[in-house]
Design a protein around this nucleic acid. Structure first.
Length: 465
RNA sequence: GACCCCUUCGUCUAGUGGCCUAGGACAACGGCCUCUCACGCCGUAAACACGGGUUCGAGUCCCGUAGGGGUCGCCA
């Protein structure tokens, strides 16, 4: 049997971090099993679904490298089919019309809650003769679920979970306007799409019991379920928009790499021994549902930062330099021309070690393209006292007699100057750093000098003298 | 409230009855390296929620308690 998984987001907002992880797990499991990974947009609620949200979700998935193996299925396109299945159920006597009003339902709910029951609908139209139907009321279609016994799910993550059938009420398949509900569409589509493994957030665990009833009513094979725990915010509360349940595009904007984010998400709730850095290929070869934990985990930015820094350093400069240019283009204090782009390209590896995100990278490399005279940060300005400026003037003189403008030669020259002046290397290097970068922290100053070139380096030093 | 799920260092986790005086990673702290900041390296501190069982032996199995989470729509 070929494994078929699906990621089925509802297009009512962006692709959030939890959804991204669900998609990842579906993708990884399908790949690992040599199966297919599909996408389905759950837009049965036309009023709440937007095209922008669909684009944002598809965009996010694409960025993460989690596009489906086939074009996405739009659930609303199957409405006729869904209604047809409901009619079939009606014909077989497995479903029935219910004419309850909103008020009646309201009362039932209040009553059930007062009695401490979970099943809300009391089944009052279950065996009632259709002739009793009130005139002018469009009925909904409800599934006849078993009144006794229990439903068992052997969840691949949660283990065996059992629920008494009297806790499951006769849920709605078709709304009064004839459109299918999510609960109904999911089952029909999962069946029609040949889904073998339903991997989703455990907020759907309770739904699974109802859905199983529907599969059974249609005599369809029930897919395997794997309900993965939700991701929580730093404070342990459910991840909400206030706590970092941002769209994945927000993480892209914050300068995270898709590979790093996927690696982080993978390790959130899944582990393989002591391995921390796991790339896509390795993840595919290792991923299994047994390794997924059953407890919710908290989203930890610090660890994401660390991992992103790691991926930044591992990624070839050529693959990220354009991303750095992109971010620098938005800045008014830098001049991005052929020359400065080349400097940044050469200096990138030196800046990388100091960055966690692409933002850090752009900020750290910005000085290579800075427009003179350089703005100084406070600490840099403090480095440029009278003594320091005198040293810089002396350095300027020595520099003019240097033929070989290379990192090694420059270092030798500066060391010599420091010795001749009876000061420590830092006494020269720090003011020099301030002059050349406008900052008190930067890549090695001789590397910076070499990359800047004689003319630009000289000019920057003169600017502060 | 009812039902379902969960509970190992601050965080992510390893651990599937003896290999656990509980391992790794991030974060924290200290040190080394050093022209700064990083990177890297070395080291320190830090956890089996609690209480009962079962067993020769329990982080690992069972029960209870506490805490946390999820669900309870003609939303998905």
């Amino acid at each position: 049997m070929t494994v078929v998984t699906r990621f089925a987001p509802s297009p009512t907002g962006f692709l959030h971090i939890g959804g991204a992880r669900t998609a990842l797990f579906n993708y990884l499991f399908a790949r690992r099993m040599g199966g297919r990974y599909l996408l389905r947009i759950e837009d049965t609620d036309r009023a709440r679904s937007t095209e922008e949200a669909v684009d944002a979700i598809l965009d996010g998935l694409n960025w993460l490298g989690l596009s489906g193996d086939e074009p996405p299925v739009f659930q609303h396109a199957g409405m006729q089919r869904h209604a047809e299945v409901a009619r079939e159920l009606l014909a077989k006597g497995r479903a029935y019309h219910c004419y309850c009003s909103a008020e009646e339902l309201q009362e039932m709910r209040a009553k059930a809650r007062a009695e401490g029951k979970t099943a809300l609908y009391d089944g009052r139209w279950r065996d009632r003769d259709p002739s009793e139907a009130p005139a002018g009321v469009d009925p909904v279609v409800r599934l006849k679920t078993p009144l006794e016994g229990e439903t068992v799910i052997d969840d691949l993550v949660q283990g065996q979970v059992t629920v008494q059938n009297d806790r499951i009420d006769d849920f709605i398949l078709l709304r009064a306007d004839g459109t299918p509900t999510y609960m109904h569409s999911v089952v029909v589509d999962d069946h029609d799409m040949g889904i073998t493994h339903v991997i989703r957030g455990d907020d759907h665990l309770n739904n699974a019991f109802r859905q199983v009833q529907l599969f059974k009513a249609m005599d369809w094979p029930v897919p395997a379920f794997a309900h993965i725990p939700l991701i929580h915010g730093q404070d342990g509360a459910k991840l909400s928009k206030r706590h970092g349940a941002l769209g994945v595009d927000a993480y892209r904007d914050m300068g995270y790499l898709a590979d790093a984010l996927c690696n982080y998400l993978l390790r959130l709730g899944w582990g393989h021994g002591d391995e921390e850095v796991i790339d896509r290929a390795r993840a595919i070869s290792l991923f299994d549902l047994e390794g997924v934990g059953r407890s919710p985990s908290r989203f930890d930015m610090a660890k994401l930062d660390n991992l992103n820094g790691h991926y930044l350093r591992e990624t070839p400069d050529a693959d990220i330099v354009d991303l750095v240019f992109e971010r620098l283009e938005e800045r008014s204090d830098v001049t991005l021309d052929t020359q400065s782009r080349e400097r940044i390209t050469r200096g990138l590896s030196g800046v990388k070690a100091r960055a966690k995100t692409l933002i850090d990278l752009a900020n750290g490399a910005g000085f290579y393209a800075a427009t003179r005279p350089l703005p100084m940060n406070d600490k840099a300005a403090a480095l440029l006292g009278d003594d320091a400026r005198a040293l810089m003037r002396a350095l300027l003189l020595d520099l003019d007699s240097l033929d070989d403008w290379t990192e090694d030669a420059l270092e030798a020259l500066v060391r010599q100057l420091a010795e001749a002046q009876g000061v420590k290397l830092g006494a020269v290097a720090q003011p020099l750093r301030a002059a050349l970068t406008g900052s008190n922290a930067s890549p090695g100053i001789f590397e910076v000098m070499a990359i800047l070139g004689r003319e630009e380096a000289r000019a920057r030093i003169e600017d502060i003298c």
